[in-house]
């Protein structure tokens, strides 16, 4: 095993990891405004990719991507509007059942629309044979797209949550709902916006990763599990924790090929999930002050 080869694994690991980060951020945003896990998060990735694949047959790729993200965002909004918003007394169990139900519904619909075959979005630049040399490692340019988009999302979200009124209002909802209402923030609308934001980020992640991993009607599930592991690893609701957790999981997974049979690669994240839930369910990267100030 040469150094270049390890570097290659690390690089692809970071790229895959950054997709997990985006999935985890999708969980976090909704968790922060509602206190629930949206088990349909993986379906947003699948939907984004599938819609983009269909649209790209009739329009330029860039338009297909934008439209796919917009449509998935609308689906996220409708989901919240019809199934979450009107619940009088939403309990955690209710929410879990509803979001799992929705994820099954979306998968079934996707099976009817796009059949059970594997589909794949075109590479953003070049094709499946192109590769570029990064410090000796050859990777598909799509990995750079993945890295670039993830970086953009993470920086963009940091600015959004820290420096815009809407972003601050969403953080206020996660900090104290009653106080948010009293400040004149419509908490219900913030929940809708959080579903839209998660859907948009999910769709984008689904699109950039589709050329590499390909997409199937139930393809969201495995990414959802990885993303969930990362969200737990970083501490639910904590996006910067998710960033660290995602990169670690992505790299570990890829390096595991060196000393574990390939078949165990996917089992790794589940193993980590179980271990974290057993020993430190609050996550590895939570600032102490922050967690002591949280409502839930």
């Amino acid at each position: 095993m040469s150094v270049t080869q390890i570097w290659q694994y690390v690089l692809t690991g970071i790229s895959m990891g950054s997709i997990y980060v985006m999935v985890a951020i999708g969980y976090n945003i909704i968790y922060n405004t509602t206190g629930i896990i949206n088990f349909a998060q993986g379906e947003f990735l699948m939907l984004g990719a599938m819609i983009a694949i269909s649209l790209s047959t009739v329009m330029p790729l860039i338009m297909a991507l934008v439209l796919a993200i917009v449509l998935t965002t609308i689906i996220g909004a409708l989901m919240e509007f019809f199934f979450i918003r009107h619940m009088k007394k939403p309990t955690v169990l209710n929410m879990i059942i509803i979001t799992i139900g929705l994820s099954i519904m979306i998968r079934e619909a996707a099976l009817h629309i796009w059949d059970e075959k594997v589909h794949s979005l075109a590479y953003f630049t070049g094709n499946e044979l192109s590769s570029i040399n990064i410090l000796g490692a050859y990777v598909s340019p799509q990995y750079l797209w993945v890295l670039g988009m993830s970086a953009l999302i993470i920086i963009g979200l940091n600015i959004f949550f820290k420096h815009t009124t809407l972003g601050r209002a969403m953080r206020a909802c996660s900090s104290n709902k009653k106080a948010a209402w009293l400040c004149g923030i419509n908490v219900k609308n913030m929940v809708t916006i959080s579903f839209m934001l998660s859907a948009a980020i999910g769709a984008l992640a689904g699109c950039v990763i589709s050329p590499i991993t390909q997409t199937q009607y139930d393809g969201g599930t495995s990414l959802a599990i990885k993303g969930f592991t990362v969200a737990i690893l970083g501490g639910l609701g904590n996006n910067n924790g998710a960033l660290a957790g995602g990169l670690i999981l992505g790299v570990l997974e890829n390096l595991s090929i060196i000393f574990l049979p390939l078949a165990y690669k996917d089992a790794l994240s589940l193993t980590i999930l179980v271990i974290i839930l057993a020993i430190k369910p609050s996550g590895l990267f939570v600032k102490k002050v922050m967690s002591s100030l949280k409502e839930y």
Binding site: T165, R168, A169, R171, A172, S174, S175, N176, K178, A179, A180, L182, C183, G184, I185, M290, L293, K294, E295
Partner: peptide
């Protein structure tokens, strides 16, 4: 409100800014 209910995880200034949300 009774019990203050400030936004614990936000800065003092952000709390004030959100007070003027409307």
């Amino acid at each position: 409100p009774e019990g203050r209910h400030v936004f614990n995880t936000l800065s003092v200034k952000e709390n004030l800014i959100l007070g003027g949300y409307t």
